[in-house]
Design a protein around this nucleic acid. Structure first.
Lengths: 244, 244
DNA sequence: GTCCAAGGTCTGAACCTCAGACCATGGACT
DNA sequence: AGTCCATGGTCTGAGGTTCAGACCTTGGAC
């Protein structure tokens, strides 16, 4: 009988959804979102509401809108949003570890459940995600997409809707273009981790799967920590400039 | 780029909040909620919005509203809501285990973190909750309140806002008046479990704390399963009648 | 120069949310 | 019996949100 209750406008919900889609790499810099009329229908909202959400993302520097024949809503290079995200992680004490620890709680248990509940189809899907991660030779957003897909599939294999939704949401709060990863070969490292998680799930070893997932996310924590708190930006000085 | 986005009206959010408050036993049958004007201010919403939410709860059988000198919003005996909840758990396949498994994921990890991050104040709070659980001799909603409080405190001790919020929300989805617990002495059993969890946290043993919490929730799963799926209702036939 | 898909703008209706005024009820107190 | 008054019940006007749908404008492709 003490807390304050709030709600969210549709516009805010849509903006958040699109932000998550971008953070998770389902669409990346240069990509064009579906036309407004079409996207509005896909999301099940009125065009007006979607447009409001797009204006929000525009102000935040996530997208750029163009009229005319090649018109559409294009994802930017994300320099400004990344700078702001990094600033927020650096400033708000504990925010960064809060998110990572939350992910560990959710995803280790998802891996544990997945090792018990997986079927042939799940395993095939996981193999697919690992394979497509291996195929990504260019340092583009395809890496984040593959990475994201693997984690989503583990979540789905756990057969728990709440867990799946929470994992999706927590992953959407993180946001790091692969280009900034400081390691020599984070893709290969990630691929090895995923392979190991896959094997423990395939072999039906819940505790091993949980451990593997925990170690994987801890490694991610280290990589992200370097990006967020490290002095070097890893990709030049653009980070500090945040052109609008 | 495929899912559907929705939002929630303030009224729905407030109704959900109040439902959670009742489910967790913070207020129980016979209790009176604060006056509308006061509660609206506490929650930070207009009286009109709160009133709408109250109407929803009234229709669902959670509360009964009275005018006049002893007027106010009173929590009912919850017979109808309990019957509906039980029906939902029985009908929607997996819903029940979905919630419990989700709680396990969240709370075992909360216990694990708590064992590392606890300080003197946390430990005192946990001892308090256990003690007040022991003092509850009557079979009233005070049991659920004490129980709820212990779990909340473990969550707080984990020092993770997202984890805490998720645990709160998951616990709010469960809902069982203590009167229906089929065991001879569920309070004593719960007290022992809590005591053990407390000791592992106090001793700084993360893995032991996680195990203890997992076992505790698994025991809860069994008790609730009996109530939800058992043929006997444990407290007479009222369950099946759900007077509106 | 025409075409036309895509963004930009506008309208009217329905609903949500708010602050605040005012009405109706019914035990408690005198 | 009569008054008091906290509490729920009702109403209003303003402002914001959301919707469907019509219509305008832009600018490469052809």
């Amino acid at each position: 009988m003490d807390r304050v209750v709030t709600s969210q406008t549709l516009t805010q919900a849509v903006a958040e959804h699109l932000r998550t889609v971008i953070h998770q790499g389902e669409v990346g810099p240069g990509d064009r979102l579906p036309a407004e009329r079409e996207l509005a229908e896909q999301l099940g909202v009125a065009r007006a509401s979607l447009r409001e959400a797009i204006k929000v993302l525009q102000r935040e520097g996530y997208v750029r809108v163009q009229r005319g024949a090649l018109g559409g809503t294009y994802v930017t290079e994300l320099i400004e949003p990344l700078a702001k995200w990094r600033m927020r992680m650096r400033t708000q004490a504990g925010e960064f570890d809060d998110i990572i620890d939350f992910r560990i709680a959710l995803e280790t248990d998802a891996a544990r459940l997945a090792a018990v509940r997986r079927d042939r189809t799940d395993l095939a899907g996981l193999r697919d995600s690992i394979a497509s991660l291996g195929r990504v030779s260019n340092g583009h957003s395809a890496f984040r997409l593959s990475d994201s897909q693997f984690h989503s599939r583990v979540a789905k294999t756990a057969r728990n809707l709440r867990l799946e939704a929470a994992i999706e949401s927590a992953r959407g709060e993180l946001f790091v273009p692969h280009d900034l990863l400081p390691y020599a070969d984070p893709i290969e490292e990630s691929r090895r981790d995923h392979q190991q998680i896959y094997e423990t799930i395939r072999d039906g070893k819940p505790e091993a799967a949980a451990s593997a997932m925990r170690e994987h996310i801890e490694r991610t924590r280290q990589q992200l920590r370097d990006i967020v708190f490290g002095s070097g930006s890893g990709s030049g000085s653009e980070l500090e400039q945040a052109s609008g």
